[in-house]
């Protein structure tokens, strides 16, 4: 039985990861620590795990790995503490708000000889895995261009507080796609251009809520990406991850979370999409549990998280300077 602890429930993905740990036969949710004790205690009750108020006591406890799901700017300190305690680590995305912190995170884990993974569950989404399989088979030939989106609804809370998140929608919703493309195409990003701003929530948010990016990858692959919190409150679901891949042999379209039913709910006075299909988070957590058991890095590494953060940092720089930023 692999024992995993969770550090902070600031990011709502922690709830899904906790549920995954509960459902896996070879893993357990050993303990919860949170710098917000009220939230931590509530989650401990929800998931039937002990809450440990002191971080040092928590990290000395009987567990093999930790999942860190705090606010973005707190990742580094928590990773450093967990690494020093010899724990295997799965860190929520983005690995850090900036490249400097992301590099420090990777270095700390290397020094402590612990495995480090970045939580990019999209790599376990079946429609995206199918796209990679098709590309890898060679049936579609060379890839020339990709148009991507990662839209969402405005999350509010600490996500829109730059002191805790490090940035807005461009930071929150670029890293998934940046990682997906590096993984699918086996190529690195070489340049980034970006227009971003608070386009839709001037009255309620302080950060950017939309970024329109143009990127280039090795071999001259042309990529556009939309990172946004543009979906209205009345939108039938949280958002999307989509890719249109222009290849020599044809075009591949992926709408990764389009396995859905449409539900017209008179009681809630709302039209909603009800998801079905496999849960990508389960694949991510199973791989982390396997990595802890096998004493290896998770499949999506800390370096993968660092590379995605390099893209977002370049996007903000491109916006500030009004120029293309080379990577």
């Amino acid at each position: 039985m692999i024992k995993i602890g969770i550090m902070s429930f600031a990011h709502m993905h922690a709830n899904s990861y906790a549920a995954c740990l509960k459902s896996l036969p070879d893993a357990s949710l050993a303990a919860i620590w949170d710098d917000n004790p009220k939230r931590g205690k509530a989650m401990a009750r929800t998931f039937g795990a002990p809450f440990i108020a002191d971080q040092g006591t928590f990290l000395r406890g009987d567990m093999d790995g930790v999942i860190i799901t705090s606010e973005n700017v707190k990742h580094r300190a928590m990773v450093e503490a967990a690494a020093a305690a010899g724990k295997w680590i799965l860190c929520e995305k983005p690995l850090a708000p900036g490249v400097q912190d992301a590099k420090a995170i990777v270095a700390a884990c290397k020094k402590a000889r612990v495995g480090l993974g970045t939580a990019f569950p999209c790599r376990y989404a079946l429609p995206l895995m199918e796209a990679k399989a098709q590309l890898d088979s060679g049936a579609f030939g060379a890839v020339y261009a990709v148009a991507c989106t990662n839209h969402g609804q405005a999350p509010g809370g600490w996500f829109a507080d730059e002191a805790l998140s490090g940035g807005g929608a461009t930071m929150d919703h670029t890293v998934h796609v940046a990682d997906l493309l590096r993984w699918m195409l086996g190529k690195e990003f070489t340049s980034v251009y970006c227009e971003l701003g608070n386009q839709l929530h001037r009255k309620t948010l302080k950060t950017d809520d939309l970024g329109s990016l143009n990127l280039e990858m090795e071999g001259g692959i042309q990529v556009s990406h939309l990172a946004s919190w543009s979906r209205p409150k009345t939108f039938p679901t949280w958002g999307d991850v989509t890719l249109e891949i222009i290849c020599e042999g044809g075009v591949i379209n992926v709408d990764a979370f389009n396995q859905k039913l449409t539900c017209f709910d008179d009681n809630a006075k709302r039209v909603g999409w009800v998801p079905w299909g496999d849960n990508p988070d389960l694949g991510l957590i199973q791989d982390f549990v396997n990595a802890v058991r096998d004493r290896r890095d998770p499949a999506v590494t800390g370096v993968d998280g660092l590379c995605a953060t390099e893209v977002t940092e370049a996007a903000y720089k491109a916006f500030r300077t009004g120029k293309v930023v080379k990577l």
């Binding site: 261009a145 227009e195 701003g197 143009n214 042309q222 990529v223 556009s224 222009i246 020599e248 293309v324």
Partner: peptide, 28 residues
């Protein structure tokens, strides 16, 4: 800002991706 393929061989194809800022502040 624009990226465009403007390819001729082996297959003729073009794919153009534009990010544009309007004077009003709107991003297109």
């Amino acid at each position: 800002y624009c990226q465009a393929l403007m390819r001729t061989a082996p297959t003729q194809m073009d794919y153009s991706q534009v990010t544009m800022r309007m004077k009003s502040g709107l991003i297109a």
